[in-house]
């Protein structure tokens, strides 16, 4: 980097810092989601919440949602721009805190051919009330099989149940074969 670029870069870092502050982002990460990362992020967030004296219920719910979101990326994120398996299981993970809610947001590459099935699943979950979600969870636990990646197909249902909110999601096109899948879950701080 020449001197001009260094300055531009450092200004970018400052802008980045200010955007994080403006959106009250307490944690942001891009990369591979491993079990170690999951453990580190959950324990970091737990200790932050404990310091801020969030209620046990809120802490537990945020913990639940974080674990399921992180595992979704590690098990389901597809590759982009490379067939190398090393590029799978990556994504962006973000925790932000507003005055009334925590937001856990994830983003990862997904193959376009999987969008329809995923949308159907998310829409079904969003169409159900508390009791409906409970029945779906029970049915999926009884009938579903653990995938070779160790997923039980229960993560989204669990997030909807624990937060009591609809799953907010969005797909942004990358190219003919892949898109970027964004999912944001809110956990009320006044539970």
């Amino acid at each position: 980097m020449d001197k001009h670029n260094v300055k531009g870069f450092l200004e970018f870092v400052y802008d980045f810092y200010r955007s994080m502050k403006a959106h009250e982002i307490t944690l942001v990460y891009e990369g591979e989601i491993t079990h170690q990362i999951t453990k580190a992020f959950t324990s970091l967030t737990e200790s932050n919440m404990a310091k801020q004296e969030e209620s046990n219920t809120v802490q537990k719910k945020v913990f639940h949602v974080m674990v399921e979101c992180l595992q979704n990326i590690s098990k389901h994120a597809d590759t982009f721009g490379s067939d190398d398996y090393l590029f799978a299981g990556r994504g962006i993970f973000m925790v932000s805190k507003g005055s009334e809610d925590y937001h856990v947001t994830t983003g990862n590459v997904i193959e376009n051919r999987k969008i329809e099935e995923l949308t159907d699943m998310l829409e079904e979950i969003n169409s159900l009330d508390k009791e409906g979600l409970k029945q779906l969870y029970k049915r999926q636990m009884r009938e579903g099989r653990l995938s070779d990646k160790g997923g039980a197909g229960l993560g989204f249902i669990d997030i909807a149940r624990k937060t009591g909110n609809k799953l907010e999601y969005h797909f942004l096109p990358i190219d003919e074969t892949s898109s970027f899948f964004l999912l944001s879950s809110s956990i009320s701080r006044t539970l």
Partner: peptide, 10 residues
């Protein structure tokens, strides 16, 4: 005190 969804199946 806590179990994830993958554990719930087991």
């Amino acid at each position: 005190v806590y179990f994830n969804t993958a554990s719930s199946k087991l």
